[in-house]
Design a protein around this nucleic acid. Sequence first.
DNA 1: TATAATTTAATTGTTTCCAATTAAATTATA
DNA 2: TATAATTTAATTGGAAACAATTAAATTATA
Lengths: 146, 146
Amino acid sequence: MEAPPGEEALLLKNQLCFPLYACAREIVKRYKPFLDPLGLTYTQYLVMMVLWEKRQVTAKALGDCLLLDSGTLTPLLKKMEAKGLLTRTRSPEDERNLLVTVTASGEALKKEAASVPPKMAECAGLTPQEAGQLYRLLYKMLNNRK
Amino acid sequence: MEAPPGEEALLLKNQLCFPLYACAREIVKRYKPFLDPLGLTYTQYLVMMVLWEKRQVTAKALGDCLLLDSGTLTPLLKKMEAKGLLTRTRSPEDERNLLVTVTASGEALKKEAASVPPKMAECAGLTPQEAGQLYRLLYKMLNNRK
DNA sequence: TATAATTTAATTGTTTCCAATTAAATTATA
DNA sequence: TATAATTTAATTGGAAACAATTAAATTATA
């Protein structure tokens, strides 16, 4: 005897999005003990990863990278500037563009951050194969954006 | 010529947690046009799914289900009570427990919500096999919690 | 039984996150 | 060129989310 179709689709245990949502929050929590010593939140850590790679980016490019808009980035970047991790200047060629540049002290943080990825990889608890599968599926969903 | 090991692990494109985090936010955004007509946010929709299934739960049990604590649930449930979706009463057997009970109007919303899961399944853009894989991997990570 | 420990919600303060709007700079077009 | 459209950040307001603390009720223990 089966439940009517509309019935079972609304059960929490049949949701795909719920574990996605819960897992994302859980992961940020698991990062916390590793990021606290660096004085970074998870979102700030993401910004730093982009800056460690590129040294300088516009706020627009950062938002495109991280899928965050100015409502999130503006206050975040101001806080990080106050902490001395980056500078915020206007592009001389196009005053609309905000240039975000890593400072020496922001750059220096990279060495301490090097220990974070291996610790996190461990606490995810997936095999390398599973992690690869998950990575591929998540990007497939993300890229399904219109 | 390879980058040093600590180097590549800090690249955004090599992160597993970033697409997880971005995908969770993206999914909530994709739900929005379907949930707005019901007057529900995504988190409120999760609460309603539990209530449609159980009719009555304690706030504690709800938090265990959804992995949310009282700091999130207390204001959320008050808002939902104000909207007439549920009632908040104390358990007579144990006054510490808050009983959350769906109202008739909350129950009535279930019929309208029946159309949401199929629409969401479509916009995830995964095959049923992939969705199953993703589901399994996410729960594996979640259950790796200490 | 009296006290201590535990459990459960609520509160407080901080950080994200987003939608919608505004303002400024630039680019396109009439 | 003058005006319109576009692009980019910033702002505003609302909803989560969480850590840490507090308060009340219950249970365990000395």
